[in-house]
Amino acid sequence: MMRLAFLVAALAGASPAMAAGGAPVPWWVWPLALFAVTFVLGAVAVLAGVGGGVLFVPIVGAFFPFHLDFVRGAGLLLALSGALSAAPALLANGLASLRLAMPAALVGSVTSIVGALIGLALPTGAVYTALGITILAIALLMWRSRKSDHPDVPASDPLAAALRLHGVYHDPATGREVDWKVCRTPAALVAFAGVGLLAGLFGLGAGWANVPVFNLLMGAPLKLSVGTSGLVLSVIDTSAAWIYLHSGAVLPMLVAPSIIGVMLGAKIGVRLLSVAPAAKVRSTVLVLLVFAGGRALLKGLGIWA
């Protein structure tokens, strides 16, 4: 898996140099390279339990020659399409809750629009610096955060009760029906506002933050948190994606092969899920995130242009 990661980094790192100093790279190499990279990222993202966008933006932004405006637009659509393809099955078997997703998605979608507008107005160097810091913080969060399969929620808060944020799902792993309810809804909505802002600003998707908010703050079971996170992500990213689309920051040559690559890669990732060494994949992703986040930070500071 580490070799695979270095292969991705080497492929991505070599391409701009070839374009800048060597013989001109035929244009069709780029969509093919993007398809290959996003196919791997799609599979790795599933195995590591993160969204494709959180890997795509720092890695492609740091090592490919595309301007960050286009990378962020592509990142949002990539995360969006991956979440859309997974959500129907999760909704159908109760591992995602539409009612739980709706308030979070509404708050997050408004702030993601604000984030996208800010991101497109800021100087590129400032966005790279902030992106680098955010990616390093995400890597730290992934490394340190604990998860709780079935958090203990003594009682729903009044807002959760009014919104009927409770239910039952069937856990195929244990064969049991799992009752769930949530608490601290107002605080969680504030957190989702922040998540939406970052998603729009950096084109990152939002799965890395949605799951801890649902699971650790609201007390939703882990499986429900993961499933519902994708649904929330699909709405939040859609809102911000329209801003990038209307701004012209969506290049079909980047986005179309990336979407197809990540969707096909995610399907392979799901098949590999039962046999792949999850801990090693997760460690590899953490190393990649630290490297790409550090690169983005140094690029933003003008140290490693």
């Binding site: 009612r99 509404l106 979608s109 507008l117 497109l120 709405v235 859609t238």
Partner: peptide, 28 residues
């Protein structure tokens, strides 16, 4: 008989529609 959820969905449609129609100031 879930008007609150219907209202949430309607509000979400309005936000997405406004974004799709390019109604936000600042977007080019």
């Amino acid at each position: 008989g879930e008007p609150l959820h219907a209202a949430l969905a309607a509000a979400q449609v309005l936000v997405l529609l406004a974004a799709a129609l390019n109604l936000f100031p600042g977007a080019r």
